[in-house]
Design a protein around this nucleic acid. Structure first.
Lengths: 230, 230
DNA sequence: GCAAAAGTGTTAGGTGTACACCCATGA
DNA sequence: TCATGGGTGTACACCTAACACTTTTGC
């Protein structure tokens, strides 16, 4: 038997597109860049890349994420695959969208110049190429669901964060104000945060205590059938 | 400018695999067939097919679904894309998994012979080729979430169904018994079912009233910000 | 008349939600 | 001392979950 099993079938270009999200000053931001090649050179696009023959899907995504952010161990999740015949007017390309959540304190702003990229406020993102706006919409929908059921918000914050910070993050994700007392009660009851002695005085005189997310505790709770819900 | 933009990149085979689910006698069933070509000829597999150049992703899925079930307008949803380098030991193939929910009363059993297929009870499904068991697991997880938040269960039932039927369906999906009175109260309160005068006497002497799902009512409720939850 | 499944309400406990004031501190 | 954001508790409404008996009818 020949090693070429599927000779009769057509092959396609396959790319990944990354919806890279960050959080600062109470707002969510999307990393957008200017496309560097045709078609649609110079227009706004998500970060993407073609799959290489030796790479699994997630390896491609990690490579692309590293290329544009120089950060490893980024939280990411597959959003879906987009396969209209004419979605890319160059040639037929199937694209698998992944979103990634990064801590902006880890991001080196100089990379923006290097890649002609910028952090665009999420609700001010304009027209992107191809179906990238659709990918973004699908991501946000997914993110809202995930954020309510999995402790992924911490990926958008520094190691140490304050409860007011965490709350504004969730407010940005859900696009609605949350009650301070209810929010704090709920998140603290889960017993997955560690309070530090240190305070963040950058946004108030009194200062807010720093907390860290205790992943070990969370994993143990998971084993006991607990599940996160905000 | 040449029309060949991405010449440097590699192309890949892309297939879809369908997790086709049905419901009868209180149990969920998966349509499984014997693979008809190499590699892995004769082993148990999901229903799949390669993407044709003129087809969008969902068109491919519809074609495959129609081929194996001869049913149109099937409820389906993308589960995810599987892209390990060696997932198909023949050649590199990326596969996009979709699940589909069908009403078994619409299904012609003779098709099973034609395709060497069978309906396998969901918790008795054995080893499938490649990563198809993983696709199935991911589908079930997704199905549980969807069934709780979208009225998709009706896709697995005939046009007319009884409340005991509907309840056993949800019990099969969640793998846990539900309280009869709470279930009925909740589903009837939603006001998306129409009670018929007719009864189904096949499973009891007294007979259970038939109901139908009123999609128009549901869509109207959606517009008013209502959302389904079971 | 009896077996077998369909159908029907109430209650208690828990969860979500709304709400207002004091505290700590730097300027 | 005052302006600013941080931190705290309670009460009520609502929803969930538990629970048992009657009805219908074919055999």
């Amino acid at each position: 038997m020949s090693p070429y099993f599927y000779r009769e079938e057509e092959k396609y270009y396959v790319a990944v597109d990354c919806i890279i999200l960050g959080f600062k000053e109470g707002k969510l931001y999307l990393l957008v860049s200017k496309r560097k090649f045709d078609p649609r050179r110079g227009e706004d696009t998500l970060m993407g890349g073609f799959i290489k023959p030796t790479e699994s899907l997630s390896e491609t995504v990690k490579r692309v994420l590293y290329e544009y952010t120089e950060i490893d161990d980024v939280y990411m999740e597959q959003v879906g695959t987009y396969g209209s015949v004419d979605r890319d007017e160059g040639e037929r390309v199937l694209s698998i969208a992944y979103y990634a959540l990064i801590d902006l304190e880890m991001f080196d702003e100089e990379l923006c110049e290097k890649y002609n990229a910028r952090w665009e406020e999420l609700d001010k993102v304009g027209k992107l190429i191809f179906d990238h706006n659709l990918m973004l919409r699908d991501t946000i929908e997914m993110l809202r669901i995930r954020a309510a059921t999995k402790p992924i918000g911490f990926s958008l914050l520094p190691e140490k964060f304050t409860l007011p910070q965490l709350q504004t993050l969730y407010e940005a994700i859900y696009q609605k104000p949350l009650d301070k007392r209810n929010f704090r009660k709920k998140i603290l009851e889960m017993d997955i945060l560690e309070k530090l002695d240190e305070k963040d005085k950058s946004s108030s005189k009194r200062g807010a205590f720093y907390y860290t997310f205790n992943k070990e505790k969370y994993d143990k709770l998971l084993e006991r059938g607990y599940y996160f819900s905000l």
